[in-house]
Design a protein around this nucleic acid. Structure first.
Length: 350
RNA sequence: CCUUUUUCUUGUUCGC
């Protein structure tokens, strides 16, 4: 049974929920009863793919088979409710937990807190922390990370930085996500120099930078016009054994496209392919925008039409710059033709 | 540490 559970988990992590569900059938066929861990694994896997309906169906199935949902099951469900923006519903389930015989744990609290933060209910979040503390539920790294992320997004960077120091004082030491969150927050506010200082501090403390750390810094450097240095960080990543991903190249690509430097833009795309990272929908969307900014609508449309052949569906973001550019130049006939094409391709306008 | 749940990064949106 552990073997099956492990395999099911593997498929879920690889984003292959259907194969995982198949294994559930096989497992039963071989005479192994799925247990609560099997169901939890599948439910969280489905939740991660946003298939909350299927997840609920599995919950019913597990109950029908006399497999009692545990706190992990409920945490997954509460999480998917939050991800769908149904925080109120999530809180109801949270409140019902006790009557179901489970005390919400630190995971449950962090999930709700994150849900509240993400939909901007800062006051409710603050109140929730109060409840949490009153119950003797001690904030952990994740709690701090969630809070700091929210503070950063609200531009309250100094408060976020204070929390960083508070963590150390309370013996709840920051991890790479803490630093990634702050570095990104600083970069987004164009406080790149402070971000670089934190990057150094991270290194001093022996907290290893990740691809995401570099991506945040690279994006920050690009946004303040330090594209040259951003590009050099790619080399530094390789030196440290980190593999730049699509996001890394997309950040640099955005900078070149904003500059209207289509030559360098195509160079970076070549480099990404050479380094084993295939362009994604964002890469194309970025390039299309760059082409439009430089008036090259025909090229942009060509790229757009080539996307399906690469197995990618253009989205509204890929179409919008073309429409916008044509509209601004009063080329409405062409704009409407593209709009029609968009609808024909089944792309929803936004 | 080693079967399951929470936190971090990239593209579009007029003129002045």
């Amino acid at each position: 049974r552990v073997t099956f559970n492990t395999l099911i988990n593997g498929f879920c992590k690889a984003g292959e929920a259907p194969k995982a569900a198949e294994l559930l059938q096989k497992m039963a066929a071989e005479g192994f009863e799925p247990d609560v861990i099997t169901y939890n694994t599948l439910i969280s896997g489905l939740c991660r793919k946003g298939k909350s309906q299927e997840a609920r169906r599995l919950l019913d199935e597990m109950v029908a088979r006399d497999c009692v949902p545990d706190l992990v099951t409920y945490n997954s469900l509460i999480n998917v409710m939050c991800k769908e923006g149904k925080v109120e519903e999530a809180r109801e389930l949270f409140n019902e937990l006790t009557s179901k015989g489970h005390e919400p744990d630190i995971y449950t609290h962090n999930i709700i807190l994150h849900g509240l933060c993400k939909c901007g209910k800062v006051d409710a979040a603050a109140e929730f922390i109060g409840e949490m503390l009153a119950k003797g539920c001690v904030p952990d790294r994740v709690t701090y990370n969630v809070l700091m992320d929210r503070l950063c997004r609200e531009g309250r960077l100094n408060q976020a930085m204070q929390l960083l120091r508070e963590m150390d004082n309370k013996g709840c030491h920051p991890d790479y996500i803490t630093y990634n969150t702050l570095i990104d927050g600083l970069c987004k506010k164009e406080r790149v120099q402070e971000a670089e200082e934190l990057f150094g501090e991270m290194d001093d403390r022996g907290i290893t930078a990740t691809v995401i750390t570099y991506n945040s810094l690279i994006d920050g450097l690009c946004k303040v016009g330090r594209v040259e240095e951003a590009t050099e960080l790619i080399d530094e990543m390789f030196v440290k054994g980190l593999v730049p991903d699509k996001v890394t190249y997309n950040c640099i690509l955005t900078a070149f496209c904003r500059e209207g430097n289509i030559n360098k833009a195509t160079d970076i795309i070549q480099m990404m392919i050479y380094n084993g990272q295939n362009p994604d929908a964002i890469t194309y969307g970025t390039l299309i925008n760059g082409l439009c900014r430089t008036g090259r609508y025909e090229s942009a449309i060509k790229i757009l039409r080539a996307m399906p052949m690469k197995g990618m569906l253009p989205d509204a973001v890929a179409y919008n710059p073309i429409l916008q550019g044509l509209c601004m130049r009063r080329r409405m006939r062409e704009a409407m033709a593209i709009y029609t094409e968009m609808l024909e391709q089944g792309v929803a306008p936004d």
